[in-house]
């Protein structure tokens, strides 16, 4: 499943239109603690978080996650988005909570496996 296929499911808005959304999403990771993401997120995870500051891009890039979904209608600032484009990390925003987005993504990924 690619990020492109998930945009609608997650009611998401793409904040980095410059970037391709054909990256494959292999799993999900929910965390608002950067140290936790650094320690445990896996390559290809879609990272679901409330955090919007600049450092999320560096962490996402280091861990090679497929993209970031920022929840609860949060919007990262221009600086974060610029860095995301440079690093090739798509950022999406959604009005839903982490729980809701994790739930929807979990169901979709499971349905795909069957």
């Amino acid at each position: 499943m690619t990020i492109k296929e998930l945009v609608e499911v997650l009611d998401a808005e793409v904040l980095t239109p410059e970037l391709s959304l054909d990256l494959e999403v292999k799993g999900g990771y929910v965390s608002d603690l950067l140290s936790d993401v650094m320690a445990h997120a896996k390559e290809g995870d879609l990272w679901i978080t409330l955090q919007t500051h600049l450092n999320i891009v560096a962490v996402a890039s280091l861990k090679s996650v497929s993209g970031i979904v920022v929840v609860n209608n949060r919007r990262p600032g221009a600086e974060t988005l610029k860095k995301a484009v440079e690093e090739g990390i798509p950022i999406l925003t959604t009005p839903h909570t982490s729980f809701e987005i994790a739930g929807r993504l979990y169901q979709f990924l499971n349905a795909e496996k069957v």
Binding site: D32, L34, S35, Q51
Partner: peptide, 8 residues
């Protein structure tokens, strides 16, 4: 502070 769960 963010790592302590605050400062959001």
């Amino acid at each position: 502070v963010r790592e302590m769960g605050w400062g959001s």
